[in-house]
Design a protein around this nucleic acid. Structure first.
Lengths: 336, 336
DNA sequence: CGGGTTTTTGAAAAGCTTTTCAGGCCCATT
DNA sequence: AATGGGCCTGAAAAGCTTTTCAAAAACCCG
């Protein structure tokens, strides 16, 4: 069916070795034969079989990407960077949507291993240790992106979440807010949850707003959870004038709750998000948020993985890219 | 490094044929040997090499997915369905973000062909004929999702875009609107652009609102384009009380423009979107829109592709899944 | 217990490419 | 003119698995 190197050789009247050489080291074959071979290749639309090459090179030029939820715009942005960078390196990316499920994750890892993926990018925010153990067993290279592993020496690309959260809350304090709360990720499971919460705590403490330390509610990862968390937060402390949300989606949930209660943002309540997902500037009001260089993080993650795969080591273990506070419409001075 | 079938055979004290049989037809080997082999496999953590199998079976268990833009939540949703269904079938999906670029698309197709992908899901909305020609040449099976090809006999999964658009506009008319406009996809390039526009035109014509036929502006695919298109639309016809947007993102752009001009939705202006992306119910106001069973469409697309790959044919060439109008907060009776 | 089946097993081939190795040819040098 | 060296080419091996085929083993029955 598909033409093989044998067919090309026959058509060009040379041996298969010569055809192979034309493809991999053209200068070693005399121009006249080279031309004949090239013509045969063109005519038959020949492409070498990836299985056969893989068997020899032991490389698939495939990277796997573990993502908790593609529908989450943050990860979609990351994925775009990853994909573009992979194309640059002539690699393909296999996408694995984990839904933060342990078994799916392990199954994906095994499958990627079997499919001879060259490496894995782990963009998930949870369950790292299980994954780590599985990876150690299969000895498949991998890097972390958008998280870093405290207790393991694993290459990672991330931002300084603690500092970024701190700056977000400073922004609120700078506007004059004194009654601040936070909607946080669940801190036990999540890796980036803890530093963002820590940044919030540091900021309020430092500003002498120790009473705000208790104004924290936890939400799982989605809009609806944030909506409910906001409900709990305001039930606990109705006088809040500002909320720091651990993600833009949380910010949206919070704002939606506020408006369903007849409070408008930013007049009655200021909300700052985190991530600067694409929707952040499409939302009404446009979200004040922390911008992550998410595309660039994806790019760096593949480059790092590539480095790890080819050299067996990586020059900079933990890489932190710059973040930035973007002030838009969802924050203002407190009412009154 | 990685254990091979040879290592397993040696450890279990049998031939490699026996090991192979244990994996593929266990009942043909006596229990005692089978047990020894299984133990050896477990001990060595043996997994058969996908390259070697591929060489024999000529199947990679990989599907490629062509998507214009992963960051577009509509495609992200589709991708989720695709990915889940692929996992069910024990397949992996390689993701190809085309950015609607002709050259990238062709390059992806070639690359997938070379990597021995078993088939391709084309979820893009443009440039179909170029892609089609390339596919014919490589004879790689493929299906369309979220578009259908008028002039070719290609398996596809879609909704009835014309009818859905018609219903969306009917909803507006039913609320009493008489001055309606539309933000449409560019009709020349896009496949689903034309039927949505046609549905709009049919609805307004049928309702005796022929003067609305001219109230159409075209936008490329993003929020910002829609924003500008809305600007042009209102410049042309300031009395509009309702807009039908060809996508939810367009609806958001339109609403954003309106609110930047001090008009509130739905009090001054009704807007209906299309797709029901996840953000549609997170937006303020929550969007009235046409729901597409996007997850299910993704699932059906892989199933269809799988059918095509295994049987060489498909039972139902063009499949149409049901859509549904969801009325939320962005539409109301016209002012006054 | 022997002959004939049936079951189980191992050797070898096939699938496609790259790479190593050796042979053939030509040129240059002595 | 003969020899050495370099360039170019083809044959064959290697990479890992499945499958075919034939041989060996086990079983059954008379």
């Amino acid at each position: 069916m598909k033409p093989t190197i044998r067919d090309v050789a026959k058509l060009a009247g040379v041996s298969i070795s010569t055809v192979s050489r034309v493809m991999n080291a053209p200068e070693t074959v005399v121009p006249e034969k080279r031309k004949r071979v090239l013509e045969a290749i063109e005519q038959l639309q020949y492409q070498p079989n990836a299985f056969a090459r893989g068997l020899i090179y032991k490389k698939s030029e495939i990277f796997g990407v573990m993502i908790p939820d593609i529908e989450n715009p943050y990860y979609a942005g990351l994925l775009r960077g990853i994909q573009d960078a992979a194309v640059q390196l002539n690699h393909s990316v296999i996408i694995c949507n984990t839904d933060r499920d342990r078994d799916r994750m392990i199954a994906y890892a095994r499958n990627l291993f079997e499919k001879q993926a060259d490496g894995i990018i782990y963009a998930s925010d949870v369950l790292f240790s299980e994954f780590h153990d599985e990876m150690k067993r299969s000895r498949l290279p991998f890097v972390l992106v958008s998280t870093e592993a405290r207790d393991y020496d694993v290459p990672s690309v991330d931002i300084d979440n603690e500092q970024a959260a701190y700056e977000a809350v400073r922004h609120l304090i700078g506007l004059g807010h004194r009654e601040i709360g936070m909607i946080s990720f669940p801190v036990g499971d999540t890796i980036s949850g803890a530093p963002r919460l820590a940044g919030y705590l540091r900021a309020v403490r430092e500003a002498g707003l120790g009473h705000c330390e208790a104004n924290v509610e936890f939400a799982a990862y989605r809009f609806e959870d944030a909506y409910k968390a906001a409900e709990r937060l305001f039930a606990k402390e109705p006088r809040l004038t500002a909320v720091f949300a651990a993600s833009d989606e949380f910010a949206m949930g919070t704002i939606m709750y506020a408006r369903d209660r007849g409070r408008t943002v930013p007049d009655d309540l200021s909300v700052v998000g985190f991530d600067d997902i694409r929707m952040a500037h499409m939302f009404i009001p446009r979200l004040t948020t922390i911008e992550q260089p998410v595309y660039q993080m994806g790019v760096r993650a593949v480059q790092k993985l590539h480095e790890l795969v080819t050299n067996g080591r990586v020059s900079e273990l933990r890489e932190r890219l710059p973040h930035r506070l973007i002030v838009r419409e969802s924050t203002a001075r407190p009412p009154g």
